[in-house]
Computed example of a mutant assay.
Amino acid sequence: MKKLLYNTFLMLLVISGSADLTKAQSGKLLFPEAPGIVSFTYRNNFAKDVPGTLDMIKGNGITDIEFSNLFGQKAEDLRRMLDERGLKCSSYGVSWEALTGKTVEVAAAAKALGAQFVRVANIPHTKGTFTLENATMAINEFNRVGKILKDQYGLEFIYHNHGFEFEPYQGGTFYDHIVKSTDPKYVSFELDILWAFFPGQDPAKLLATYPKRYRALHLKDLKKGVAGNNSGGTDQNNDVVLGTGQIDIPAVIKAAKKAGVKHYYIEDESSSSIEQVPQSIKYLNSLKK
């Protein structure tokens, strides 16, 4: 009996030690959690089979989704499908026209989805030319709509950069001007790290410069050898597995965590997203502090 108790005691010590070791190893990881996903990553799949695509997302261990399309579903029905699978929609992306012209309808859909954020990823402008007039119009609309969304619906507006905003302006860029000129109470930002890197910016530096303004990130990587510009456009297949491209992903995540960012959405626009997303998740979960 004593021998049995002693052996049991030793076994418990081993189990406890293993648990402590696992905990310690987890504590050394930079990104041990599951990332979120942007619905655009699986746009073709969603267009054919919404429930099946949600099942695939859940199968990858992802629970946090940013929807930029309802894929023919009512917001209430999509929310039901999410709830049935233990998934959530934290951000709802809409067009400029919907944001500014149908704010009430957008807010209603966002609330039905259970979203915290309403996001827009474009500012109307002539392609290849982003001007002070465009930036000023955006600043005014962001402040106006952001106030409505927060004060009337308890939602937070976030703007997603797309590259064209980084034209030089007054020792900085129009993007800097937009960040500095919008009301932090009503306007926050989502940093798409590829669309910051592509026009020559450092995503980690932006996070460090405006640490209180960012709520979310789009995690993506740019294929090696691809040259950038301020156009806001590149071949979608230039999106590669995180860690295999040009962007210093660990530096970005360290800066984002220091800035208090809570939502990290993988967005893989390539035709290989089904194969690449699991590889990107594996890469993120392997990073050490």
Rank of each mutant, 00 (worst) to 15 (best):
T131A: 02
G172T: 00
Y283N: 08
L191I: 10
S16P: 12
V277C: 03
Q25H: 01
H162T: 06
G172A: 06
V50Y: 11
R79C: 00
K180E: 12
Q276H: 09
Y175R: 03
D235I: 04
A259Q: 04
A109Q: 14
E105V: 11
T103R: 12
S90G: 07
Y214N: 00
E133V: 13
L242D: 04
T126I: 11
L99E: 12
I193E: 02
K257D: 10
K220E: 01
D192N: 05
Y210S: 13
S188R: 13
V261T: 11
A24P: 02
V277T: 15
Y265C: 05
L78S: 04
G17R: 08
A251T: 05
L54M: 08
R213P: 11
K185V: 15
W96M: 12
M137Y: 14
D192V: 05
T129H: 13
A138N: 12
F197N: 07
A138W: 13
G114D: 10
H162R: 08
K58P: 14
K28Q: 14
V241Q: 01
Q276M: 08
A108P: 10
H177N: 08
G61D: 02
A115K: 12
A208I: 00
I57G: 04
A259L: 01
G72P: 12
T131C: 12
R144I: 05
V240A: 06
T129A: 13
A112M: 09
L99N: 10
F67K: 06
K111C: 08
V118G: 10
L284I: 00
P32F: 04
G245E: 02
F174D: 06
P211Y: 00
F9A: 15
N230Y: 00
A112V: 10
S273G: 03
A251G: 00
N60R: 01
G52V: 10
A47T: 14
